[in-house]
Amino acid sequence: MEQKQSAPAVKSTAVFGDYLIMLIVPAVISIWYYGTAAVHTLIICAASSILLDFVFSVLFNKQYYAADLSGLCTGLMIAMMMPAAVPAYVCVLACAFAILVIKIPFGGGMRAPFVPAAAGFASAAVCFKDLVFTYSGGREFMGSASLGSILQAGGSVRITSASFLDIFTGNIYGPMGTGCAAVFLGCICFLLIRRRDALISSAAFLGAVIVFSLVLPRTGGTALSSLLLELSSGSLLFAAVFFLTDYSTLPGHTLNRIVYGLFTGIICMVMRRRGIYEEPVCFAVILGNAFSPLLDNVTDRLQVIFTSGKSKKEAYDR
């Protein structure tokens, strides 16, 4: 009986432990680039997430597992997507939305219908658009504009070997922990070893983004420079590694995971072109999360229609 009760905590610790390991490097890089401002943001987000998780779990009479790392991971993910100099109350409100509205009411990090960090950041983007998308620090390309805002305005960036290095290492105006493409390539390698099954949707997501960037470039340069800028701007690679691999929102079937990734990628690129926010990947992820159970439901029904006998029963049981 005791084993049965602690099972969700063990699973949650294993999954979010991996995320925590992957979050360490971008956190260190953000501190390297932004100094004490990044430390403040990281501490505020992490502390408010853990505290809110604990206090409201107790208030709502839910079991709180000390080893459950989902609260800490949610806080750190939100911090990574914020600008380093964002006011503390924006961080706290984003974390509060993620924990109180998305995580706790649905039974914890492994059962949330949406990625809590994506929802928290999206709510902050809606409420404090000017604060969340105003960046500081990093190498300047066009005044103090971020890559996302340059692309949104239809501008182009001349990529030299020096600027390529800055873009690849995240030394540009943008969110404090999501700019370094090199780190996320490392994270993808880590996931290839640890959780290969969860990477399918990320691969589909990146595939959709790559095709979209090559076919319909937003910049005046070559298709390859468009691809590099699209992948490096905003939180796209970060979302591919941390949001698209979230087990609570991933569809069960492999084919559905591919469809989910493709759908999210296409929506993200359409929103980047037509939306009002320079980084709409969180909104695209939330929209993808909303369709995720529907995909499994449709597949199950199709399986029932096209199979018979024992396999039909298995399809229902699933």
Binding site: Y89, V126, C127, F128
Partner: peptide, 8 residues
Amino acid sequence: FKLSGMLM
């Protein structure tokens, strides 16, 4: 501060 998301 105002949470404009509340009006949505």
